[in-house]
Design a binder for these strands. Structure first.
Lengths: 214, 214
DNA sequence: ATAAGATTCAAACAATCGTTTGAGAGGTGA
DNA sequence: TCACCTCTCAAACGATTGTTTGAATCTTAT
């Protein structure tokens, strides 16, 4: 049996080698993990030569980082946009800020072009507690978390900064994990969009309660 | 640098070779994942010969299964015990059944003798969606999930069976993931036991709302 | 004490891993 | 046409993987 079983071969000429590698890596990392998916599996699924990974990305580790960067760049800019919109409302509350954090991620999880695979990759990364990956995210998206933390802090002035960061880390993990299951869940009598909205409502309510607790 | 960095070497004569391997595997699987932790790392940390794994467990995959079996046997029997206690109450509700499901897992996550490492292993397994591991859990602990599903179904007669199983799967994942972070979270002015109780309350409330939603 | 069985050990197995190499194909501008 | 640069390719690199082997050692019962 082939190692690319079930993974769509992205051999269209419409996509560059780099993009095909990123897409195949995303799908295979979601399914087998970072250590479990080999570069030979990735390049085979992407229909490119094995050496192409090290040529275009330098190393497997850097490929992993690029898989994250491609999606998180878009995700976090949308989060900041939504945050600015929420803070623009004069009477905005905790739930509005949480919504700005969750909603773009939900949209990503509903994306058919690899986005739903990526949220599973994200869930793996959270489960891994990978220190190297955490540093990458901190370096590249730390300002996003800082902006949200500032917004939360203004709404929760009694809460210690350090404690706030712990809770945001927990919330990120819980939300990420909950999102990772979206692909397989079918709720009767509701469209996927309705289902995501319903889940978002529950998650936001849950997270708001966790943030408010003393 | 040694590959066993930071992992306690279980070389006490009080523990058998099998137990030392299971303990070291549990700790290293929690830290590096199933594919990421090699048998040489495991046997080195356990202070046993490399071949001991295949002698006592047959294969790495079977070792993984045994790591799960050791903890889940105890966990699930306690869950069933708590479920019987909850069902014994004449006026028991959804939260009581959920508590019977969550509480034993929380106790395990607070256990210092590898239990807290094991919940991280569990979180990884959920994130992996490992089909082989899911089959193992289904074969060995399917009756536990069935008993809980029956209890939930009696309390939610309007809910379709298939839909109920989906929701229980989600809840299991969410609870497991939330538990996996316990080791590093320190909440000011609360003992670890109090913190676990507080988190359990939030989780149960969240799960109950999810189950009741139409 | 002695045979039988259970366990441990160093060593090696084939397979696979991420990475590197050097030749060559393909396109671009002078 | 020529030189230049980008990219692809098959092949090989050393290292590490899970597993197996057969002899050595320890345990146990007769």
């Amino acid at each position: 049996m082939g190692v690319t079983k079930g993974v769509e071969i992205l051999n269209s000429e419409l996509f560059s080698t780099k993009q095909r590698i990123l897409g195949a890596a995303e799908a295979l990392f979601a399914r087998h993990g970072f250590a479990g998916a080999s570069l030979r599996q990735v390049t085979s699924a992407a229909n490119v030569n094995l050496a192409a990974v090290n040529y275009h990305f330098g190393s497997k580790e850097n490929l992993i980082n690029e898989v994250f960067r491609r999606r998180l760049d878009e995700l976090n800019s949308q989060r900041l946009l939504a945050l600015r919109g929420a803070l623009g409302q004069a009477d905005h509350g905790l739930e509005d800020v949480l919504d700005a954090f969750v909603r773009p991620a939900l949209t990503l999880s509903g994306d058919a072009h690899g986005g739903s695979a990526f949220v599973r990759v994200l869930a793996r990364a959270y489960a891994e507690h990978n220190e190297q990956l955490r540093k990458f995210m901190h370096d590249h998206y730390g300002h996003v978390l800082r902006d949200f933390a500032q917004a939360f802090s203004n709404l929760l002035p009694h809460l210690d900064k350090q404690e706030l960061y712990w809770r945001l880390d927990i919330i990120s993990g819980a939300l990420t994990y909950a999102m990772a299951d979206f692909g397989v869940i079918k709720r009767r009598g509701a469209t996927p969009e309705q289902h995501r909205d319903l889940t978002a409502t529950h998650l936001i309510k849950f997270a708001a309660a966790g943030l408010r607790s003393t």
